[in-house]
Design a protein around this nucleic acid. Structure first.
Length: 262
DNA sequence: ATGGTTGGGGTCCAA
């Protein structure tokens, strides 16, 4: 089973390159973040045409929004809200016995101080809530995979410059502490780093604001796939589709793909 | 230190 995760930065603005992902990689399951479309306006027809008949969506007007679409049927699915907000950040479905989650962590604003910046406080609270929720499910033996835009680049090799980004939201010590606490509490294994050595720089996001994103290569690895230990032996491969950053009207994030040998 | 770009919905906010 091939699973893709992609912060698509508006589903309706990217129908062409969504079809391109399907043509080029044919994922069985696609987890999307930043769909920017409320549920009543969700483009169901597009996914019917592409062959993704099974869908669970959690979208709001204007911002955020997540979806999980599949060619294979669900045996269960649902959506969850966090931190007393209805802001479209989590959907899940069980496919081929695997519990799959599409998650969008709050970006956190510009100032990395929870006292000065409410958005940063929300980001930390969101990760703490996830930590507690998954700690309760740790060691239940369920094959589980969590994918999405987690908006944190934890390793030094997940950013173009560790020194220059240490005080920049997405790579601050407090965010990394929260992310790793969440990962450890749930018994999660970073699937991409399980397959790619830690000393190799890998990014999934490049800002729109660079004149030449490829030449500057000031990227960050914000998009992740984590698995529980029951799934580690099934990890067959991964790909970060860097070339997608040059597709027509690209998202600033590229798809991350995981292959599971079930 | 600053400003750079994108999308959505409506002339500003979130990323």
């Amino acid at each position: 089973m091939r699973i893709a995760t992609w912060n698509i930065n508006s589903l309706r603005a990217r129908t062409g390159i969504l079809a391109q992902l399907v043509r080029e990689r044919a994922p069985d399951v696609i987890c999307l973040q930043e769909t920017k479309v409320e549920d009543d306006l969700f483009p169901h027809g597009l996914f019917d045409e592409l062959g993704y008949a099974h869908r669970v969506i959690n979208g709001i007007r204007n911002y955020h929004g997540v979806a999980l679409v599949s060619r294979l049927p669900f045996s269960d699915c649902g959506r969850r809200d966090w931190c007393d907000k209805v802001d479209g950040r989590h959907v899940h479905a069980t496919v081929e016995g695997v519990d799959i989650h599409s998650v969008y962590v709050p970006a956190g604003g510009d100032i990395p101080d929870p006292l000065e910046n409410e958005k940063f406080a929300h980001k930390l609270a969101f990760m703490s809530a996830k930590t507690a929720w998954w700690a309760a499910q740790r060691d239940d033996g369920v094959p589980r995979i969590l994918l999405g835009d987690l908006n944190v680049a934890p390793l030094e090799t997940d950013v173009w410059s560790h020194k220059q980004l240490m005080n920049v939201v997405s790579h601050t010590p407090i965010e990394i502490e929260h992310l790793l606490a969440w990962q450890q509490a749930g018994g999660w294994i970073d699937a991409v780093r399980h397959l790619v050595p830690d000393d190799r720089k890998i990014y999934s996001w490049w800002s729109y604001r660079a004149k030449d994103w490829r030449a500057a290569d000031r990227g960050r690895r914000l998009d992740h796939a984590w698995v529980t230990s029951a799934l580690t032996p099934a990890l067959g491969g991964c790909e970060i589709m860097k070339d997608a950053r040059d597709w027509t009207r690209p998202s600033d994030h590229v798809p991350v793909l995981i292959d599971l040998k079930l």
